[in-house]
């Protein structure tokens, strides 16, 4: 393709063989230094003291509890944020209403706010000295320093992930198919489930995968609202810090390897989804039209 393109046009940056190799070299070495090396170190450190230390760390009740906390948090936060993201993307791309831009900005806020700020903000809302704290305390409802606080903080941080994946795609797809479905007599729900949803299936899954990875890895916001009680309110990332500060570097890296493994699964899922998504998008479009009547 570049042969055809560069035939007539003046050479662009990166066309020279030396320069091209230099650029590729820089990218590869940066990638190795910034991404590959730390991942390898995690693996190496985790097993440095042998497989026994590795498995005993993962079998320790505190570690298992931390994994469980992380999984439960994800099981709550991800579906909620998925529903929120789909609803937000649907509203923004398929309808016109006042305050649409405001909604877009609101969705973006968690991306631009540091997670620690989110955590502290939750303290001021739900903490004993905060807005709702005294009321919650009087009614014996525990939010902070317990699972609800951790889930809330995780949800705040990952709120935009699904919507951000869906909005550009749904905008590009336009409203023609929905309008056609409606004009053929389909109800709003029917249109959504038979037309809109199948069209964005892969992007949605991709958003869910990213959201999940981030929920499981979230540290800053959760650290503030968790209370760091061993075997009680520690999620996996907090548990890693705890082990590291306990001078149990091997244990910390063993736990870190679980999170790293999750990241690798995320990448594999992402690649797989992108492949299937690209291949099927065309077929689905025609599919969706045919199911519309």
């Amino acid at each position: 393709m570049s042969a055809v393109a560069s035939h007539k046009k003046p050479p662009r940056v990166g066309d020279g063989p030396v320069f091209r190799r230099l650029l590729i070299g820089i990218v590869l070495s940066l990638g190795a230094l910034l991404i590959l090396a730390p991942l390898l170190v995690i693996g190496h450190e985790a097993f440095k003291q042998g497989v026994k230390v590795y498995t005993s760390t993962l079998n320790h009740p505190d570690t298992r509890h931390a994994i469980m906390m992380t999984v439960i948090t994800a099981l709550i936060a991800v579906p909620v944020n998925t529903a929120f993201g789909v609803a937000a993307a649907w509203a923004i791309t398929k309808f016109d209403f006042r305050g649409k831009r405001l909604l877009l900005v609101v969705i973006e806020i968690p991306f631009s706010v540091s997670p620690i700020v989110a955590g502290v903000a939750y303290l001021f809302v739900y903490g004993l000295q905060g807005l709702f704290g005294p009321w919650l305390d009087a009614h014996d409802i525990k939010i902070l320093f317990a699972l609800p606080g951790i889930v809330l903080a995780s949800m705040f941080v990952t709120a935009p992930f699904v919507a951000r994946e869906l909005i550009p795609l749904m905008q590009a797809q336009g409203r023609d198919l929905e309008e056609a479905a409606t004009s053929l007599g389909a109800s709003g729900w029917r249109t959504f489930f038979s037309v809109t949803l199948p069209n964005v299936k892969w992007a949605l899954l991709y958003g869910v995968v990213l959201c999940n990875a981030r929920v499981m890895g979230e540290f800053g916001a959760v650290s503030i609202v968790s209370g760091n009680i061993r075997g009680q309110t520690n999620t996996l990332p907090l548990h890693i810090e705890l082990l590291y500060h306990d001078y149990q570097a091997a244990g910390a890296f063993a736990s870190a390897s679980i999170l790293a493994l999750l990241a690798v699964f995320t990448i594999i899922a992402k690649v797989a989804l992108e492949r299937r998504g690209a291949g099927r998008r065309k077929a689905q479009a025609t599919d969706a039209v045919s199911t519309g009547h």
């Binding site: 004993l128 000295q129 902070l144 320093f145």
Partner: peptide, 8 residues
Amino acid sequence: RSVIDGLE
């Protein structure tokens, strides 16, 4: 701070 904010 955590105890002030409600850590039991």
